[in-house]
């Protein structure tokens, strides 16, 4: 009897020590859930979710403060991915945050009108605008995420939204049109 208690107690202490050591030795620095959520967000840094960027939104979601349907640029795809990750049911996008854009957009600066005030440069979350004080500015289209944050600060309204350039490289085969017969029959 006593041997059994002692040996079990000894094992418990041993495993406790191993677990305790592992917890210290292999401690993960940042919250991995936040990283995982952040990886699913589109990184436009547009703030439409009411948080100042994608990572703060991811942190809020991890704490349970924000819902999964607050990201208009991500659209349905992101919501489904987030639901999958967090083990909740997907839901439609919250219309308060904005609407899903039909196609991806970027902004361009009308360089004839630009006065070189640098306000848009300060607003751009990904440093995609190039220019200096009293010099013409321009958008690096490759890097623009289409967040449109540069538009409100512009005093001369010289920034326009245009669709992202389509090329053969990012062209997609259209989904075949479904006939009524096919739609009618499920399963």
């Amino acid at each position: 009897m006593l041997t059994a208690i002692l040996s079990l107690a000894g094992l418990a202490i041993l495993f406790g020590l191993i677990l305790g050591f592992a917890a210290v030795r292999f401690r993960v620095e940042s919250d991995p859930v936040v990283d995982k959520i952040d990886a699913l967000l589109p990184q436009t840094q547009c703030g439409q979710c009411t948080y100042p960027g994608c990572r703060p939104y991811a942190e809020a979601m991890a704490k349970g403060e924000a819902d999964i349907n607050q990201c208009p640029p991500g659209g349905e795809q992101t919501i489904v991915a987030l639901a999958d990750l967090l083990g909740v049911d997907p839901k439609p996008l919250n219309p308060e945050m904005g609407e899903v854009k039909e196609e991806k957009t970027v902004v361009i600066i009308d360089e004839d009108i630009c006065i070189g005030c640098t306000l848009c440069i300060q607003a751009c979350p990904v440093d995609a605008i190039l220019g200096a004080a009293k010099q013409m500015h321009t958008v690096i289209e490759e890097e623009c995420t289409g967040c449109n944050l540069c538009i409100p600060p512009c005093p001369v309204e010289c920034i326009y939204i245009v669709p992202r350039k389509k090329s053969i490289q990012n062209w997609k085969w259209p989904k075949p049109e479904e006939t009524q017969v096919e739609n009618g029959a499920k399963g």
Binding site: D38, L41, P42, Q43, T44, Q45, G53, C54, Q77, P125, V126, D127, A128, E143, T145, N170, W171, K172, W173, P174, K175, P176
Partner: peptide, 28 residues
């Protein structure tokens, strides 16, 4: 086949978007 081509190109474009958003994250 058109369904498969649709799915393949869709996946490629999603991958491109993923790379783009990774760059955007880094820049931000």
């Amino acid at each position: 086949v058109q369904y498969y081509r649709f799915a393949k190109t869709e996946i490629w474009v999603q991958e491109q978007d993923k790379q783009k958003s990774d760059i955007a994250r880094e820049r931000h």
